[in-house]
């Protein structure tokens, strides 16, 4: 869980950084998209790095989702009679919504891939073969932007607890200070990643980034 989670974090960090290239305009962004595909050539075939990454991500996803559901199943079996009244005292909302947050992210990723990678759906009916234009067209639609923003909220929450949880799962938080640091890191990554991702859609919708 922690290993796959950490891989995801590395990926979303990179991905977010890539997305921010949209602020550089049409050519910068497309060059980046192209660069991704040609990286490592000629040692690697075209899209070689991308495929390595994809395979790793898919493996991690399978592992992550499998463990998530296994855990879910175990806790469901661990308490089959629910409390009539149960209070939460110390836990964050994020920690208690990891599973539904995860499912939200999963649904989002599916849609996201249809949107940008596999299916290349342009909701405004425009062309789909120019990554930058597809991006701008997509987020010019307000409802798509909202879907993305909601997903980013889910991601932010998932990360806020996930980072700390991974540190704890790896046994790195053996004292109060380490615990505080892990929690702070969770917040920082959550805000940076979810916030960073959100910038592009918001600025597109606001018209700052445009074709």
């Amino acid at each position: 869980m922690a290993a796959s989670g950490l891989l995801f974090i590395a990926f979303v960090l990179m991905h977010m950084y890539g997305n921010l290239k949209a602020f550089g305009g049409h050519d910068t962004y497309n060059a980046y998209a192209e660069h991704l595909r040609t990286f490592g050539e000629p040692i690697l075939p075209r899209e070689g790095l991308l495929w390595i990454l994809r395979v790793a991500l898919i493996a991690a996803l399978v592992l992550h989702v499998y463990s998530a559901f296994a855990l879910w199943h175990r806790s469901a079996k661990a308490r089959t009679t629910k409390y009539v009244m149960k209070k939460n005292l110390a836990s964050s909302l994020s920690s208690r919504t990891m599973r539904w947050g995860g499912v939200t992210i999963l649904l989002f990723v599916v849609w996201h891939l249809i949107n940008f990678t596999i299916g290349k759906v342009n909701v405004s009916g425009g062309s789909t073969n120019d990554p930058y234009n597809l991006l701008v067209d997509s987020f010019n639609s307000w409802w798509l932007t909202v879907i993305y923003l909601v997903a980013m909220l889910a991601l932010g929450m998932h990360l806020q607890h996930g980072v700390w949880s991974a540190a704890q799962t790896l046994g790195l938080t053996n004292n109060a200070r380490a615990r505080r640091n892990a929690k702070s890191l969770g917040w920082i990554l959550a805000v940076v990643i979810a916030g960073g991702f959100s910038l592009v859609p918001i600025f597109v919708l606001a018209g700052v980034i445009s074709k």
Partner: peptide, 12 residues
């Protein structure tokens, strides 16, 4: 017993 996801209600 269930698996821990570091929620922290136990400590409280």
């Amino acid at each position: 017993f269930g698996g821990c996801t570091n929620i922290g209600e136990c400590v409280a």
